[in-house]
């Protein structure tokens, strides 16, 4: 492999790890908005636990991405000093909290996706990434238990909660296509034995999601083919607002320690 090819591969590797890192970070940041405002005190604690796990995953993954990149950027440089187009999180993660049904639905769709991803990555050819995935997998199993439980309560609860849950599923479904659409980065990492075949993970995710929808008495929306590309840095308008808030202090006081 010549130097250019090696640089390309490193870049793809960094981008791949950043996708995982940013997805956890952005989702954790969104959950952080709930704390103190949840529907019940016990749920404040539950959502905070999810947020803490996700931010913990983001820190491990960002640090690793920074090391792979080799330009001296640590977890905070990557989290607080990149612009929206440099964030490679999937588009679903940045969607606003909305009502509790939206938050739960977003969480549940991503938990089910992270379950597949981390399960596959836990045995991948990159030992560092495999170790992070193995740890994250345990956390994600609980996240999925939490979110799927709530999806069922909301779907099979009152007429109002069912209406809200179905509205959330209808609204967010269009972002799920991105989760299983491989691009050149995914393919390249797959060739090195690091990334799983995204398309091959879809049936298992689909079965799980369908079963939850059935128990929750909710309907799976029709496929909506518009292709979102958050993982390539093309986001919805929501992300830059989220970053403006999250990065406020680091941007205002360049170079300061906190």
């Amino acid at each position: 492999m010549n130097a250019d090819a090696r640089a390309d591969e490193t870049q793809a590797h960094v981008r791949y790890v950043l996708r995982l890192a940013d997805t956890s970070l952005i989702l954790g940041q969104r959950l952080g908005e709930w704390i103190g405002h949840a529907p019940a005190l016990e749920e404040d604690l539950g959502l905070a636990n999810l947020a803490l796990d996700l931010i913990g995953q983001a820190r491990l993954l960002l640090s690793y991405a920074g090391e792979l990149e080799g330009r001296g950027r640590d977890e905070d440089a990557l989290a607080f000093l990149r612009e929206a187009p440099q964030f490679l999180s999937v588009t679903l993660a940045e969607q606003p909290n909305g009502d509790f049904a939206h938050t739960i639905t977003r969480q549940w769709l991503l938990d089910a996706w992270q379950l597949e991803m981390y399960q596959a990555l836990a045995g991948c050819a990159d030992p560092r990434l495999a170790a992070i995935a193995a740890k994250a997998l345990k956390e994600t199993r609980y996240h999925y238990r939490f979110s799927s439980g709530w999806l069922v309560r909301l779907g099979d609860g009152t007429p109002e909660s069912r209406r809200r849950a179905q509205a959330a599923v209808d609204e967010l479904w269009r972002f799920t296509h991105e989760l299983f659409s491989p691009d050149e980065t995914d393919e390249r990492m797959r060739a090195t034995g690091i990334a799983p075949d995204l398309a091959a993970l879809e049936p298992s995710w689909s079965r799980r999601v369908d079963e939850d929808l059935r128990v929750a008495t909710l309907t799976r929306p029709a496929a909506q083919p518009y292709a979102w590309h958050g993982k390539r840095g093309v986001h919805t308008e929501h992300l830059s607002h989220l970053l403006t808030e999250m990065q406020h202090l680091q941007r205002t006081y360049p170079g300061a320690s906190w």
Binding site: H37, P39, G157
Partner: peptide
Amino acid sequence: AGEWVREAA
């Protein structure tokens, strides 16, 4: 805002 959630559960 949480009332419908608590009722649903």
